[in-house]
Simulated scan of single mutants.
Amino acid sequence: MALYPDFPLSTERLRLRPFTRGDVDGVFAYRGRDDVARYLFDPPLSREECALAIQQRTNQTGFLEEGDRIVLAVETAEDGNLVGEVSLIWRSVEARQGELGWIFHPDHHGRGYATEATNALLELGFGAADMHRIYARCDARNEPSWRLMERLGMRREAHFREHGLFKGLWDEEFYYAILRDEWLSLRHA
């Protein structure tokens, strides 16, 4: 199944759109920060590394085969301010599963932007992409991230304790998921 959505995806306060070369400074403003990189696989990125990442992301706008990803810039509808990014990865064609991810600038935390943007990707995943299950994962210490998963109606399915080394320390990770039927019932509740 090929899926190339029409962009931008719009919510009440946000626009989710493909990245452009003009986003380098906006992405560097959050991806260059230690506090943002703390729970990411990458260290803080340099401006040049952000430019390379954006170059890759400009083509990550649809699904053609397993492993493809949609990675979108999240900007405020009111003023076009880049506040973060969201992603949906097609993890299994046969099992119709995807993985949801997000990174937001700390200056914009606490405003509901992450909830609003990730709900738009759940809509895409369970709607046009016809996924059966979408999961997300985070470092167990990243409380804002797992609280977001709970706000989305996801349930904690796993807690992996000291399952791998992450930045020189033993990593603990939470996995959360939601099924299409569960998501539909939450929307109609």
Score class of each variant (00 low, 15 high):
2 A>G: 13
5 P>K: 12
6 D>Y: 12
6 D>T: 15
7 F>T: 00
8 P>A: 05
8 P>C: 05
10 S>R: 13
10 S>P: 10
11 T>D: 06
12 E>A: 14
15 R>F: 10
15 R>K: 10
16 L>I: 13
21 R>Y: 07
23 D>I: 03
24 V>T: 11
24 V>M: 03
24 V>P: 05
25 D>I: 06
29 A>M: 05
29 A>G: 08
29 A>V: 05
30 Y>F: 11
30 Y>I: 00
32 G>T: 03
32 G>C: 02
33 R>Y: 04
34 D>V: 12
36 V>W: 03
36 V>F: 07
37 A>G: 04
37 A>I: 11
39 Y>V: 02
42 D>F: 08
42 D>A: 14
43 P>A: 15
44 P>C: 01
45 L>E: 05
45 L>D: 01
45 L>F: 05
47 R>E: 02
47 R>N: 01
48 E>Q: 11
50 C>P: 03
51 A>S: 13
51 A>G: 04
51 A>P: 12
52 L>Q: 12
55 Q>M: 06
55 Q>E: 08
55 Q>R: 14
56 Q>S: 13
61 T>L: 08
63 F>E: 00
64 L>F: 08
67 G>K: 07
69 R>P: 00
72 L>R: 00
74 V>C: 04
75 E>A: 07
77 A>S: 12
79 D>Q: 03
80 G>L: 15
82 L>H: 11
83 V>D: 00
84 G>V: 11
87 S>W: 13
87 S>R: 11
87 S>C: 13
88 L>E: 04
88 L>D: 02
90 W>M: 05
91 R>H: 05
91 R>F: 04
92 S>W: 15
94 E>D: 13
94 E>V: 13
95 A>R: 12
95 A>L: 14
96 R>W: 14
99 E>T: 12
99 E>D: 07
101 G>P: 02
104 F>W: 07
109 H>M: 08
114 A>S: 09
115 T>S: 02
116 E>H: 12
117 A>F: 10
117 A>C: 11
118 T>L: 09
118 T>W: 09
119 N>H: 03
120 A>Y: 00
120 A>I: 01
121 L>Y: 01
124 L>E: 01
131 M>P: 01
131 M>W: 12
134 I>R: 00
135 Y>H: 14
136 A>G: 09
136 A>V: 03
136 A>L: 00
137 R>I: 07
139 D>G: 01
142 N>W: 09
142 N>T: 15
144 P>D: 06
146 W>D: 07
146 W>G: 05
148 L>I: 12
148 L>D: 04
149 M>F: 14
150 E>P: 04
150 E>S: 13
151 R>K: 11
153 G>M: 07
156 R>A: 10
156 R>E: 08
161 R>W: 07
162 E>D: 07
163 H>V: 10
166 F>I: 06
166 F>N: 01
167 K>N: 02
169 L>I: 09
169 L>H: 12
169 L>F: 13
171 D>C: 09
171 D>M: 15
171 D>L: 15
173 E>M: 15
174 F>E: 00
175 Y>R: 10
175 Y>T: 14
177 A>H: 12
179 L>I: 09
179 L>V: 09
180 R>A: 09
181 D>A: 07
182 E>M: 06
184 L>H: 14
186 L>P: 01
187 R>C: 10
188 H>Y: 15
189 A>L: 10
